[in-house]
Amino acid sequence: MSGQPLLIFAAKAVGILAVVLTAATYATWAERRVAAWIQDRIGPNKTGPFGLLQPIADVLKLFFKEEIVPAPVDPVLHFITPGIIMVGVIAATALIPFAENLTLADPPVGVLLLLGISALSGYSVILAGMASRTKYSLFGSLRAAAQVISYEIPMALAIASVVLMAGSLSLVDIVKAQSHLPFAITQPVAFIIYLIAVFAETNRAPFDLPEAESELVGGYHTEYSSMRFAWFFAGEYAHVVIASALITTFFLGGWYGPGPDGVWWFAIKTLFFVYFFLWVRWTYPRTRYDQLMKFAWKVLIPLGLLNILITALIKIWG
């Protein structure tokens, strides 16, 4: 808490959380509009100006919908899993350095903590599939489990080379190390590896196999309805927002930018990556499962190791 009065700290926490959750809600609206635009359609534009009230209407609708819990589900796991995804997202929010004086927590092992949180948030997907006791959900969670484990490694390797460059495990120090040149330029390989791995981590197309609609109905959230389903949905988009913020932090120099530095640079970069997530989703077809796995183990991980080696050598002799 770095000596701040508790009240200010709490206000900051609530404010940041509100911003992130609002961004996640509006990411659903953006997803639908961007998808429509890319497919020569218009998208939701009737509810409020430009359809901006659409997410609120959706949430209200889901809130009043009847909740259906199928008889064979595991009641305890079925009940708690939608919460887990939000816990992970909210915990990650605390670590993101939005601006120089706008960071809730800056632990000395922030990067590792973030990796741990992202590893734990995979549990919501895995447990949701197991609790539902349906073949579709089970397949979804099976894929999710393998995918999360596989892509965690290249992600960690990419971050490791960033950590080598910055010489610190604190997120604020990593951003500060990029005050002149963002790591996207000095570490292009790590940047691309991270970008690919983060798509698999957030279960977004082209790596959205855990919820592949065309083959698994809804994947892990097939048996969830009403507000429970909305939690999964909001969790996915919040994950996208957080992931974009992390890309900004690790590779694009956070709040630094041409002109006056500040939180707006962070917002612009994050919003660009949120758009990038949507853009990629509506451009590429879904990969096959074996392709996904092969790509992680045979391309990304060796590349990441090589990248760390070269970075370390340059660090020593450069």
């Binding site: 092992v109 590792l112 903590l113 990796l115 741990g116 590893a119 734990l120 995979g122 965690e152 960690a156």
Partner: peptide, 9 residues
């Protein structure tokens, strides 16, 4: 944190 990443994760 390593405990979380390796064992739990």
């Amino acid at each position: 944190v390593i405990q979380i990443i390796v064992y739990s994760g």
